[in-house]
Simulated scan of single mutants.
Amino acid sequence: MEKLMILSILTLIAIFGSTGYFMLSKTKKSQKFMRAFLRLNLLIFIPVIVFGVITLVPQMASAAENAPQGGNGLGFLAAGLSTGLASIGAGLAVSQVGAAAIGAISEDETILGKTMIYLGLAEGIAIYGLIISIMILGRL
Rank of each mutant, 00 (worst) to 15 (best):
L42K: 02
L42E: 01
L42I: 11
L42P: 01
L43V: 08
L43R: 07
L43S: 12
L43Y: 12
I44Q: 02
F45E: 05
F45K: 04
F45S: 00
F45P: 01
I46V: 14
I46W: 03
I46Q: 03
I46H: 05
I46M: 09
I46A: 09
I46D: 00
I46E: 01
I46L: 12
P47N: 06
P47Y: 01
P47V: 03
P47I: 03
V48G: 07
V48S: 11
V48A: 15
V48N: 00
V48F: 11
V48Y: 04
I49G: 00
V50N: 01
V50F: 12
V50C: 10
F51L: 14
F51P: 01
V53D: 00
I54Y: 11
I54G: 00
T55P: 00
T55K: 12
T55I: 12
L56S: 14
V57W: 12
V57L: 15
V57C: 07
P58Y: 05
P58G: 04
P58H: 05
Q59W: 09
Q59M: 09
Q59G: 06
M60H: 07
M60K: 08
M60D: 02
M60Q: 11
M60V: 12
M60N: 08
A61K: 10
S62R: 15
S62G: 02
S62K: 14
A63V: 03
A63T: 07
A63C: 04
A63H: 08
A63E: 09
A64D: 08
A64R: 07
A64P: 11
A64N: 07
A64W: 12
A64M: 13
E65K: 14
E65N: 10
E65S: 12
E65C: 03
E65I: 09
E65Y: 11
N66I: 00
N66M: 11
N66Y: 04
N66L: 10
N66D: 07
A67N: 07
P68K: 14
P68Q: 10
P68D: 08
P68H: 13
Q69I: 01
Q69C: 00
Q69Y: 06
G70A: 10
G70Y: 10
G70W: 06
G70D: 09
G71F: 06
G71V: 02
G71R: 11
G71T: 13
N72A: 15
N72P: 01
G73I: 13
G73M: 14
G73D: 02
L74A: 11
L74D: 05
L74W: 14
G75L: 15
G75K: 12
G75V: 08
G75T: 07
F76A: 13
F76Y: 15
F76I: 02
L77P: 03
L77H: 01
L77W: 08
L77Q: 03
A78V: 02
A78T: 05
A78C: 10
A78I: 07
A78W: 04
A79N: 09
A79F: 07
A79R: 09
A79M: 04
A79H: 08
G80K: 04
L81H: 12
L81A: 13
L81N: 08
S82H: 03
S82R: 04
S82A: 15
S82M: 09
S82K: 10
T83P: 00
T83D: 09
G84P: 01
G84L: 13
G84W: 05
A86Y: 00
A86W: 00
A86C: 03
